[in-house]
Design a protein around this nucleic acid. Sequence first.
DNA 1: ATGAAAGCGCTAACAA
DNA 2: TTGTTAGCGCTTTCAT
Lengths: 365, 365
Amino acid sequence: MTLHPPRDGVGGRIAASTDAGAPVLPVPYLQGRVTMQQVAAEAGVSISTVSKVINGRYGVSAETVGHVTRVIDRLGYEASLVARSLRNHRTNVIGVLVMDFEPFSTEVLKGVADAIHGSGYELIAYSAGGHVEAHVGWERRSLSRLMGSLIDGAVLVTPTVTDVQADGRVVAVDPHTGPSGLPSVAADNLQGARLGVEHLLALGHTRIGMITGRSDLLSAQQREQGYREALAAAGVQVDESLVRCGDFEAEPAREAARDLLARSDPPTAIFAANDLSALETLAVAAELGLDVPHDLSVVGFDNIPESALADPPLTTVQQPIRRMGEEATRMLLTLISGDDLARPHRTLDTSVVVRASAVAPRGAR
Amino acid sequence: MTLHPPRDGVGGRIAASTDAGAPVLPVPYLQGRVTMQQVAAEAGVSISTVSKVINGRYGVSAETVGHVTRVIDRLGYEASLVARSLRNHRTNVIGVLVMDFEPFSTEVLKGVADAIHGSGYELIAYSAGGHVEAHVGWERRSLSRLMGSLIDGAVLVTPTVTDVQADGRVVAVDPHTGPSGLPSVAADNLQGARLGVEHLLALGHTRIGMITGRSDLLSAQQREQGYREALAAAGVQVDESLVRCGDFEAEPAREAARDLLARSDPPTAIFAANDLSALETLAVAAELGLDVPHDLSVVGFDNIPESALADPPLTTVQQPIRRMGEEATRMLLTLISGDDLARPHRTLDTSVVVRASAVAPRGAR
DNA sequence: ATGAAAGCGCTAACAA
DNA sequence: TTGTTAGCGCTTTCAT
């Protein structure tokens, strides 16, 4: 492995005068790493002249511009983003900082990309690698590493910490601890949960259990509250023994489901705080010989792709993830342009995606 | 909202000798952009000492290490990725270069993320913005901008140009013009298309139309060839009027679909060169009042997440996109470690995912 | 119209 | 053990 392949006489050929008798050989492509230095040498001008040409600054003769431009094209030169960002404060690059590239964050990423089209910005998505050590505080760490040099602003996806204060050019999507200092975009978890439970109520269910999420996360709290509010609004008393914590994770969710379904008087429907829990509930029901949806109705939350593939396909509450990315980006661009945000905290509507896992309870008309 | 929880007088306590009467105030947090310079000043040592501490170099007293470390923590300092990469040639960051963040590339991204977990690398995904001007040659441009400084190696997603020669630390995923100079990973498009069409033939269809992809791309050519081969193998004559170009894009695909379905003798099934075209076909069919799958069967290619959510869920040929990203990353890591690739061009198998958009044609037994 | 030189934040010789 | 210094590739005064 050669670190730097022989740059065969590029330096030699510039000799002539301008580029008179120069390029006979294909092109001194080199190892994909042409610097401004090399362009300058090849063109027989100074580095600063090349820089001026590239940035369209005044004070360069048309002739020189043409010549340098040709050399640039021939060499396939492109300014190093890194070197440039070290000098300039403006980079025209937006960053999307994620803990890891999984379904939720990549969906947000698509929304960001949508919103950025035509804005002239480039997009960089960064993940510290998803390794354990980086877990806590990844958002602050990533921000420190990139902000102010590589990127002009950042969209933070599902940050746990929102008290970072990075110059005001940061927007959080679905912050885990709820809107605080940072401008943020989130789905309306409260409304979503109400919608999900109302769907069940409308179907005729009254004994509706819930598998809740991680109690330290705002989204989980709101989803539980939505459940309670929907029941209350329908005049149904919440049976606390029907509320079990699933922590947004597979194993705890399975146990919660088992708890609920092994009772002598199981609920006729279960509302799960996320699709993952709902999917586990489906599995537990199957193990118990229960027929979903006829013996048990299940409604989830999130609408992850897997939900559509479940057996039966899961009825769930959909978050407009992609639109959340778009909206956050719009807010970010506003911030970057120096304007203030009219509404620093946006909440987007959710909706129920009706599939096959919830129907009227046995015996209902 | 506290910016940075008061770490009770740490600054005060170091005072003793080094930075005597200095920080009494909370902390000179500034605007989220702490530099090594500031850490050095705050700690009362030189910049290089701070650098040594951060990089664990020898020649710093345990006491100084402790002190500097504490200051770093207090200020929340994190080395700028940019400044560091300008100096070092090694950055421990892998780049995924894409034309745009759409379903295919984000799926590859997930695979890359999977493969990178635990490798100690960080991941940056970069898109020049998907704007038109950047269209041609985006891969070379992106490579020039990032390679050699920001990233140690790159995974190029669906590049059109593959004659880039960037030091050999580049792997292409699904190169549009087929395997050439660059190591590459691709799905077996020919086999996949045959599988998809054979599925339709097995269902009893014989009037099978096709919406083809961008004719300049190898994948599109192969998918069309697979379609033709499958029909030929089944003894079905290809009706050229049933083959329409959809360019792998929404609008052209819609038109192709309309063309095909508005005929007096429409095909009973359509094989689309990618899911996007298939999804558009579904939409057009719906507009035309056609019942998919009963009036028309549709089979796509790619199996992007959206396909499962379509109405009806799309039967499609699955490319192991995520695994392609994983494989490419494995190859890239091998290259970066200085080893040679045993097989520089990998082809991964495809398979048919049977969902609901294709059934036997009307009148078939 | 052009070039020399300083410096962005950092690391790595080299001095002290 | 510590600090000084020279760049990495680029942009930008400020001479020339």
